[in-house]
Design a protein around this nucleic acid. Structure first.
Lengths: 284, 284
DNA sequence: CACCTTAAATCGAAAAATCCGATATTACCC
DNA sequence: GGGTAATATCGGATTTTTCGATTTAAGGTG
């Protein structure tokens, strides 16, 4: 059965007329007639009552309506979501950590745009775990994340090691093993491990956030301190809006590039990776 | 786009092989090949990577999968729900009150089976209000209910007047305007009105149920009293398991037959109504 | 390296479906 | 009975789909 037949059905149901439906769908009335007939034959059930002033749904037709709707919609959505513009060759699906949107996703999109304009790009921004799931399910071509899980069909490469430093809105030092107004930013499992090792007696912090930028905004507005990626806060330190807490331990946070072992499109992946590496000129 | 194409897609995705999918769908492998090709062309996107040992979904293919699934499913469900067996001519959709299943729906189905075997019958059993909704939405050909709302396109006929009598598991009379272990069965709006008129000072009952048979079962098991349809409890009174409470007021509950004014199939409706009337030999 | 095997792609022809345009039919209104 | 506004039907052109046979591609194997 054809989706266009169901679309015709929906249009007739909506307009109450074969002719109007035909106009809307840019076909002749006889075509609509044939399509409805085909539907009715395959379902072996009448869908419309033909009256002098148009067509009206039967009880069966009404029942059919919701199914037709979902079928037509899912096809339309499929096209919207995955159809590729004519001038594009393929789509790369990249997943990045929420925190990495500014630092990685945005410049990568930029790079792709100018260096591989025949490739469309889609980016999913999520936490590590959902990204892993999507990778495993084949919904992503590649992803950049912390805490990857090794899997036979996945290749994991080290991508970038970030330095997490303790900063504060006022110049200060570590006091009583903890600074005031401390916000715990969840930078992933390995960070949590290092953190509790470095501050074994620290009480659980009042505030705990999952996304770096959220925590940073909070601190900038209300004051406080927390661990953030050095690169991100560097400009703010230079401006004098933030201060590095001396003597506080630093943490390293490794980031990994993960992708399917035998990808659906080798060149595609290679280009995407090239783009990713190129936006990290500071790495060796 | 054709549903069968998507089915082919799903089958290839499931089996990982064009050939196996072809076998399952009873077509040739070249057909599968063409169908997938058609899909890929219309979406302008590759769905499978063809490998030596079969076909594997691309990221795009994975994304498409859920849409294909819902589209195919909705068509299949539509067929299941509304397709008519070859030897049937039409389906009547009847709605009855929950309480009326035994008294009306079951015997009607029986009647239809023997007197109009070329008509399929579907019954929806619900409360009055949802039945009205379904009628209004054209999902039912006719319904039997209490408290119908008048609407221009609906015909309402009186169908049956039931007598509600107060019964109890022990012989007793009305005491202090209320009997013990009383269960309030919600027999609809007009009953509620009559009830509160007859027992103006009655405290709200401990138990209140919406379906007659549920309340009846409760009483039979745990003892108690309540209003029930005379016809239903008559055999139980005869058995000595229930007793009629003397002096208690009786209530009438009118039931209506409601259907579309100009139905999609006049004969169909007429037959159905004839069947309904015929199972009420006790009415004038 | 030549050969084999397995899986998918392609090709040509037959079959089926779809669509159009014109015309027929139907029901109702005047 | 004629007119009108709707859908149904018909014949033929066109397009799509299918099949069966063959070809191509990518790995294995001796």
């Amino acid at each position: 059965m054809n989706i266009e037949h169901m679309r015709a059905f929906l249009e007739v149901a909506a307009t109450g007329s074969f002719q109007l439906a035909a106009d809307k769908l840019h076909v002749t009335q006889s075509t609509i007639s044939a399509r409805i007939k085909a539907l009715e034959e395959r379902l072996n059930r009448q869908l419309f009552v033909r009256r002098r002033n148009g067509a009206e749904l039967t009880a069966g037709g009404h029942h059919f309506h919701r199914h037709a709707l979902t079928a037509v919609r899912s096809w339309d959505r499929a096209r919207q979501e995955i159809a590729l513009p004519d001038d594009m060759k393929a789509i790369v699906n990249l997943g990045v950590q929420l925190n990495h949107w500014d630092r990685i996703a945005a410049p990568w999109l930029n790079w792709m745009n100018s260096n591989a304009s025949n490739l469309a790009a889609q980016i999913v921004s999520e936490y590590s775990e959902p990204l892993m799931h999507r990778l495993r399910d084949g919904l992503l071509d590649l992803a950049i994340l912390y805490d990857p899980q090794q899997r036979p069909e996945l290749v994991i490469e080290s991508f970038l090691v970030e330095k997490l430093i303790l900063i504060s809105t006022t110049p200060r030092q570590v006091e009583a093993e903890r600074v005031q107004g401390y916000i715990f930013v969840d930078w992933g499992d390995s960070f949590k491990a290092q953190h509790s090792l470095a501050f074994p007696n620290a009480p659980s912090p009042k505030l705990s956030v999952g996304i770096g930028s959220v925590g940073l905004n909070h601190i900038l507005q209300h004051g406080g301190s927390g661990y953030f990626i050095e690169e991100t806060v560097k400009p703010l330190i230079a401006e004098g809006r933030l201060f590095r807490v001396k003597d506080a331990p630093e943490f390293k946070r490794p980031t990994y590039l993960v992708y399917q072992d035998n990808p659906s499109d080798h060149d595609l992946l290679e280009t995407a990776i090239k783009g990713l590496r190129s936006i990290l000129p500071d790495t060796v």
